[in-house]
Simulated scan of single mutants.
Amino acid sequence: MKLILGILLPPLGVFLTYGFSSTLLINIALTLLGWIPGSIHAVWAITKHQEQEANI
């Protein structure tokens, strides 16, 4: 579900994964530059977070 939100509404997907953090601010800046960079960053960040949780 978070990945779908990361594609459709990138800052929301990142916020639900990381909360208010520097990752969210970076994603907001990228989304303001364009929807595609924001979506790519969101998918990457959400996937990275899920991989880290799986390794724990």
Rank of each mutant, 00 (worst) to 15 (best):
G38C: 03
T17S: 10
L25Y: 12
I36N: 01
W35V: 06
I46D: 06
L3S: 08
T47H: 11
G13C: 05
P37Y: 00
L24D: 03
L32S: 10
I56N: 15
Q52P: 08
Y18V: 08
A54S: 14
K48I: 06
W44T: 13
A42D: 01
I7M: 08
Q50A: 13
N27F: 00
Y18R: 10
W35D: 04
I36C: 03
I46G: 08
I36W: 07
A42P: 04
E51I: 11
L9I: 15
G19T: 03
L30M: 07
I26D: 04
T47Y: 12
I56Q: 14
V43H: 06
I36D: 01
G13A: 07
I36R: 02
W44C: 11
G34M: 00
M1V: 13
Q52C: 09
E53Y: 10
H49Y: 12
T47D: 10
L33N: 07
E53D: 13
L24H: 06
A54I: 10
H49P: 06
L24T: 02
L16N: 06
T47Q: 11
Q52G: 11
L5D: 03
Q50W: 10
F15V: 07
F15R: 13
I46P: 07
L25R: 10
F20V: 15
E53H: 12
I46A: 06
T31R: 00
S39D: 06
S39H: 04
I46T: 09
L5F: 10
A42G: 05
L25P: 08
K48W: 09
L9D: 03
Y18T: 09
H41F: 15
T47K: 13
F20A: 14
Q52I: 11
W44R: 15
L8P: 01
I28R: 00
G19F: 03
P10I: 02
E51G: 09
L12F: 11
L24Y: 01
L32V: 11
T17N: 02
I46V: 12
N27Y: 02
L9P: 02
M1H: 11
A45I: 04
Q50M: 10
L33S: 10
L16P: 07
K2H: 10
P37E: 04
A54G: 10
L25I: 12
T17D: 04
K48E: 14
A42F: 01
L8A: 09
N55D: 14
L9S: 08
G6P: 05
L32P: 06
I36P: 07
N27S: 05
H49G: 08
Y18S: 09
E53N: 13
F15T: 07
S21I: 08
A29E: 00
F15H: 14
P37W: 00
I56G: 15
G38Y: 01
I28D: 00
N27G: 06
H41M: 10
G19Y: 03
S21M: 05
T47W: 13
I36S: 03
F15G: 09
P11R: 05
P11E: 04
Q52S: 13
G6L: 02
L16S: 04
N27H: 01
L16Y: 11
V43G: 09
I36E: 02
E51A: 13
L30Y: 04
L12Y: 05
